[in-house]
Each structure stands twice: as C-alpha cells, then as structure tokens.
Design a protein around this nucleic acid. Sequence first.
RNA 1: GCCGCCAUCGUCUAACGGUUAGGACGCCAGGUUUUCAUCCUGGUAAUCGGGGUUCGAUUCCCCGUGGCGGUACCA
Length: 479
Amino acid sequence: MPKKIVTRFSPSPTGFLHVGGLRTALYNYLFAQRNKGQFLLRIEDTDQSRRVEGAVENIIETLEAFGLKPDNKKPVVQSERLKTYRQYAEQLIKDGQAYYCFCTPQRLEQLRQGQQTKKLPPRYDGRCRDYSSDEVEKNLATNQPRVIRFKTPKTGQTTFADAVRGAVSFDHQTLDDQIILKSDGYPTYHLASVIDDHEMDISHVIRGEEWLPSTPKHLLLYAAFGWPPPQYAHLPLLLNPDRSKLSKRQGDVAVEDYLKKGYLPEALLNFILLLGWNPGTEQEIFSLKEMVQVFKLEQVNKAGAVFDTKKLDWLNGHYIRQKSPAELTSLCQPYFTAAGITADKKFLEKVVATEQQRIRTLAEIVEATRFFFEQPKYEAELLIWKRMTGREAMANLKRLADELQTIEEKKWTADYLEQHIQAFIQASGARVGEMLWPMRAALSGRPASPGPFEIAGVLGKKETLKRIEHAMQLLDGHN
RNA sequence: GCCGCCAUCGUCUAACGGUUAGGACGCCAGGUUUUCAUCCUGGUAAUCGGGGUUCGAUUCCCCGUGGCGGUACCA
C-alpha cells in the first residue's frame, strides 16, 4: 500500500502572508488534494525576537479567504513543543551524533571575520566537537551558556532526488556543524522541522528554493534519527521585475495589500498558480477545483518567475466580469463606504453594472462611477464632437432634451431610451455621433464613460434633463 | 570567496532530438461602436555565448557568461 500523501505549509509568524508564501501554500494544498491526502498547517515560531502579534491569526484568515483550508483544525505550533525538541537533541548527544558547544557569539563572530579576510568559507572550527566528557561536565555544572551542534560527517556526500530538480548533491565537507538547539532552549529551523515533519508523517516537503542548500543537513538529521526522509520539492522563487528576489522595496508583497487594492482571491490564486507551473495544455483560467484536478508536481518548473502584475490585472478583470451585478456590488461596497459614498442598494447595483466591463480592480469602482453621485465638472469643449461647433452641439442637446421630455418616467429605462432615441436620430437625419457624444459628455463629464442611454437610465429623467440643461448653459456661455 | 540552483518573445510559459519554435499577458493594427471598455480578427517579438555528441540540437554533454539562492544561536 502506498504511503499516504501528507503535505504541510509552515510559515513563520513574522508578519502578513507573503505572495510567495501563498503560492507555496497553494501548491502544497493542490498536491495533497489531488492525491487525496492531507494538507497541514504548522507555525514555525522558534525565533522569539521576530514574533509578530496577530500574525498567526492573519495567516489563517488569509488562507481561508483563498479556500486553502488546512486539514488540522489547530495548527502545530513549535513554541509549544520545546520539550520534545530538547529531548531529541539530547538523544543525539547520547548517540554521539551531536555535542554541546560553549563558544560565545563573540568568539564565533571573530572566527567568521578571520575566515572571511582569508577568503575562506565561514565555518565553525569544531573547537567543542571533541571535548572530553570531563570538560563538558565541568561546563555544564557551572551553567555555561551552550548550544547543541550537529556532528556533521567530515567526508562523503549527500545526494537526493528533488521532485522538481532531479538529483542534487552536496559534499559534507562544505557543510557546517549546524546549531540545532539554541542557548535559549529553542530549536533552530533545521531540528524543529525535521522532528515535526517526521511526527506529522509528512510525505512531501514542498517549499521555496531558498531551502535547497540546507536540505542535506535535514537528510543527515533524518539519518541520525534513523527515520525515513520525505520526498522534497523545491519551488522556483518569485522575482521582482529586475529579477532579484521578490521584495517589499519594489512593490507590494503582502497578500493583504493585493486584496486591499481590489484584487479578487480567485484571480490572485489563478495568477500565482501559473507562476512556476503549467498545465501542459493551453488552459489559462482555473478555479480552485479545476486546479486540484490537474495539478502535478512534475509540471512545476525550475526557473524563477517575475511577479508581473500586468497579467494579474487582466485576470482580475476577467473574474470581475464573471460576477453577477449583485455580487460585484457587495464586493465594491467597502470601497464606496471608504470614499464616503452612500446610496440605495438597488441604485448602487445599477451604477456598478455600468462599469463592470471597464474596471480591472474593485478599488477602481469609486473613481469610475463618481459622476453618478454628483454633478460632474467639465469644460464646454468636452461637449463638442469632432469638428462641430458649440452652437451645433447646443442645438443638438436642445433637440434631445425636447424629445426626452416627452418620454414618460415609467418607460425610462436604458433599453427603451436607446430604442426610442436611436429612432428619433435616424428620423431627424442627424449623425449618431453628433447627437450622442454631447449627450454622453453632458451626463458623465468625461471623455470616456458608459453609453448615454445606460447612464440616463440609471440617473433617471429628472437628473438627466438637469444635466443636459447644465451643459447647454455652459455652451451658451462658451459661444 | 566558497557551495548550489537556474537560463525560450518585454513578462508567464509550450515544444518523447526532426515544428514555419506554439499559447497567454502586454504592445501595435483592423472590425463592432457616439467615447472608453468588452468582444472578434490579424501583427510584432525568443532558444545567453562557445565547443562537442548526432544525419539532425531549444532539447543531451562540457566550458564560459549571466541571474538567483545559501553561506546566522533567522526562517
């Protein structure tokens, strides 16, 4: 019977969830789901100095907003498992696979500097590695601050088959005697993640490429404990436009920032899916369910991917257009509220519908629809189509206004207006543009906007005529 | 410095050693349209360099170059 597939996402709670982290979580989730396995969450909070209040809650909420629900209700929290790590570390000492190190940070710093000036690889010199048990006992008895280091083999090499990169190998002599338990009693990442992955029965470790160089250390620990190692898969990095590692300095990296700007979770997820993976077909649009059906680790690629939001904008526009007007309106509601715009829900829905094909992010809805809520300000020139004169524009508006006046309020809908006014224009022998451009400009105050009938339908008869009247006055003064 | 990973249009990416090197975003042009957007059609644009192996390399091997990652009592 094949081993059950279990993956994990194991962020450090040092701030908001990063888009790179979201992708790692997504791939872990997809791989587990695809193979009917489990996707677990673990919090790696072994660095007390970097702990950020509320980060754990934020990570869980964000994952949930994207539909990436872990299968463990409560995440495994490393800071609650200190005793376990210590026991395992001490076990390693008993077995001669690790040792106490009493070197001070100052000494280590000096050592490193000396090595660097001699252009040597910075590495622990092993001073405490071969202390006699008497010396160790003495230091322990006097309560000297100490760490536990792993006794890395001095010769040989570790080779492993990475699921995305193939065979990778490292010579042991290039590896350091890694600290596995810090002087404050907390484990380092290396120890904690190996123990937890083993105890959580993780079958596949899918993580960022920055972990590739420490994988041999992890494998050596598995061997020291006598545990079977998991399968590793190292994902390509997400990059800035200049191809450096994605960073805050060159744009937003927190998932929350994108959500605030009005990107839809499904768009962001779809975008991120395609950064480092391809389906092998020409499909580009994927729901979470579809992703689960087609995701394969073998189709993850090796090279880093630039996080270029152009395509994200396109995808977001696509998903916005898929929404029903009611859904889209409630998604836009917070942006209106923040802008101090309040309106009847039905009215708001009609307003939002007029811009559904134009906006690419939810945040754009406010500026795009502002003219619905207040009389727009504009110059008379705006009302004049191509090379017609202001006088002509005014005359056309007058004819339109007279005609609109005859339409009953009950019949005042975009469809009816369109049908009626188009017929009117045709009968009058005028060109469509010379009538409709001034009307649309009068109503919206903008060179680009939804069509005049759509706007008039939403504005209503009274407001529509009022705005046309306003436009005619402007033109009158202009002539 | 040392160790490791990587390398196809501007960007994301396809191409069991044999393709006019394909798709998507962007950009440009045309169509629809009162404008913009949507939508439709078309176009622009790439195998980092040098050596091998092979009848034939984007593809396999080596070297170079470049980018990135690691080199912590951070993860």
